[in-house]
Every structure is written in C-alpha cells, then in structure tokens.
C-alpha cells in the first residue's frame, strides 16, 4: 500500500487497520538518517507495538566492522555521483530542446515529429543512464561479494528474524538513496515475504522499479527530473511522486505533458497529503486522493481517462 506524506495527515494507522494488522509492525526509517531513532510520533500514531529495524544504525556499525567494504562503497558512491552529473549535463540540453519545441506557437506535424524525437532522445538517455548505474552496482556486488560477507549475512538474518515476528512492514520517507541502499543491503523487503507493506514518500519511491528525482522549481538549476537508479522493484509501471503539489508545477500543462510523455511507460502518480493506493495481486485497487499526470498536460484523479 502506497501512501502520501504523513507529517500533516498521518494515515498509516488507518491503512494498517484496513489490512487487518494489529500485531507488531516492523518500521524502516533509515531515510531519516541520523534521526532514524526519533520514531515516537510514529509509534504513537500507529498505536500498536513497533519494531524499529534500525537499518541506518546497522549499516553504520557494519561499515565500522568492515572498513574495506565501506571504502569500496565510498568509491562507488563517488563514481556514481560523477556519472549522475555527466548524465545531468546531457539531460539539460535534451530537455531544453524538447521544451523549446513544445513552446513553438505553431504546433504542426513537423514540429510534432521533432518533439516526438526529442522525447525519445530523452528516454534513450534515461535508459542508457539507468543501465550504466545498474551495471556499476552489479559489478560492485559481484566483485565484493556483498551478499556473502559475514557481517552482511549476520545482519540480514537479524533483520529477517525481527520482521518474522511482525505482521507488516512500514517504510517511511526521507533520503531516497540512503533508504534504498539500506533496504537492499539488508534485503529487508524480501524478508517481508507476503506480509503487507505500507510505504510512503521516499519509501514508496524506493519500492518502484526505477527511482526518479524531481523538482520543477529548485533554487538552482533547470529543474529537470533525473533518473537516479533502479528501485527495489516490488512493483513496476508506477512512478510515485510525493509532495507533487509542492515539487511540481502541476498548473503548467507543458511541464506536466513533457513529464508524462518522458515517463510514458509508467503512470506518473501524484501523492499528496491523504493519498492512498492499494496493491492487490499484480494490480492496483483502492485509490484515494491520488492524481495522475497525463500526456495531454492535465492532472486527473487516478482511474479517470
């Protein structure tokens, strides 16, 4: 189950109740980084026993015990950051071309043809970047045998044991890269097995097949959404966009249209306060307050055409 941001309109408790979960709930707040343990408000809201998986702390301790892994990860992070910057440089030009074509007053067939080509070029760039990022990650995992390292094996077993005693897994937002790295490192989502998972904000983003960073009006830069990496892949075909009202210019049809066309293989779903989307089997069912960005540049309630 995917939820909107929780700070102003918390809805996790209601979601858990609807799922029939009244037992302990395992929570991941690793995206909060050093504030990971500040879960009092969340516990109070949830109203049942909460098991803090402490994935951020566990990772810090693991890195202390395994400095070789830490050093290698730091080098990989530096390499991935550089890759992201290089991708961003090319992306700026590709996006500028698409925007310029979209802004032409006379939208005839020739302009449309070139606009389509410009969007396809952006998609190619996104795919290329994603492939490169995942290739670096896969090579790293293989080279360093991350999943076989003693400390990692032990920590994963401990996390799995904790989750095993719980009726659901709740994944909060925060720093999406930190969160998805910790979820992967400790294999927490796989350990949840068939238990219900409730995730919001960065938590929802981390579970998707790809993670897209977005902000239309940053104080610096062009505000081009960027593909960061693959997510956990618990579901595909949906890009959750938390805080969309604040982060995206939803009233700007051109920006909305370009976003939706660029990521047309996904449903671009805005999750603001109170939003909720339930997954049933391989599909999605109950929808509440979720809106969708359309290729025509509109923002419509999810479920509408």
């Amino acid at each position: 189950m995917l939820l909107g941001p929780q700070r102003l309109r918390p809805s996790v408790a209601g979601a858990l109740a609807d799922l029939g979960v009244d037992g302990p709930v395992a929570v991941v707040t690793a995206g909060w980084q050093e504030r990971e343990s500040e879960i009092d408000e969340l516990c109070e809201h949830v109203g049942c026993e909460v098991v803090d998986l402490e994935l951020f702390r566990r990772a810090e301790e693991l890195f202390e015990r395994d400095p070789a892994l830490f050093t290698a990860l730091r080098e990989r992070t530096g390499r991935l950051r550089k890759l992201q910057r290089l991708y961003s440089t090319r992306l700026d030009h590709a996006m500028a071309a698409a925007r310029e074509l979209l802004a032409r007053p006379a939208q005839d067939d020739l302009v449309a043809m070139h606009f389509g080509g410009a969007v396809e070029a952006i998609r190619d760039l996104d795919r290329e970047h994603l492939d490169r990022v995942e290739a670096i990650r896969a090579a790293f995992d293989e080279e360093h045998g991350v999943a076989e390292r003693d400390d990692v094996v032990a920590a994963r077993a401990e996390v799995a044991r904790l989750i095993d005693g719980c009726g659901a897994l709740a994944i909060a937002g925060g720093h999406v890269a930190v969160l998805v790295n910790r979820l992967r490192l400790f294999d927490a989502v796989a350990s949840a097995g068939s238990r219900p998972i409730v995730a919001w904000s960065a938590g929802a983003m981390a579970l998707a097949d790809r993670i897209v960073l977005f902000h239309d009006s940053p104080p610096q830069g062009a505000g081009n959404a960027e593909v960061l990496r693959a997510g956990i892949g618990l579901y595909d075909g949906v890009l959750p966009l938390p805080h969309a009202k604040r982060r995206l210019r939803l009233g700007d049809p051109a920006r909305v249209a370009l976003f939706a066309r660029r990521f047309a293989a996904h449903r671009c779903l805005a999750f603001d306060d109170g939003a909720r989307l339930d997954r049933v089997g391989d599909g999605w069912a109950g929808v509440d307050g979720v809106t969708r960005l359309t290729v025509e540049g509109r923002v419509v309630p999810e479920g509408d055409r």
Binding site: W32, G174, V176, A202, H215, P218, P219, Q220, P242
Partner: peptide, 18 residues
C-alpha cells in the same frame, strides 16, 4: 537570500522526500 544561500550551501532537495 534564497539564491545566495542555496548557491553557497545547496540543500538535499533532490534526495529527500519526507
């Protein structure tokens, strides 16, 4: 101030979704 502070000290805007 917004332009200056965010230039001097860029925040984690792109990465954090709470």
């Amino acid at each position: 101030l917004q332009a200056g502070l965010s230039w001097a000290f860029p925040g984690p805007l792109w990465m954090i979704y709470e």
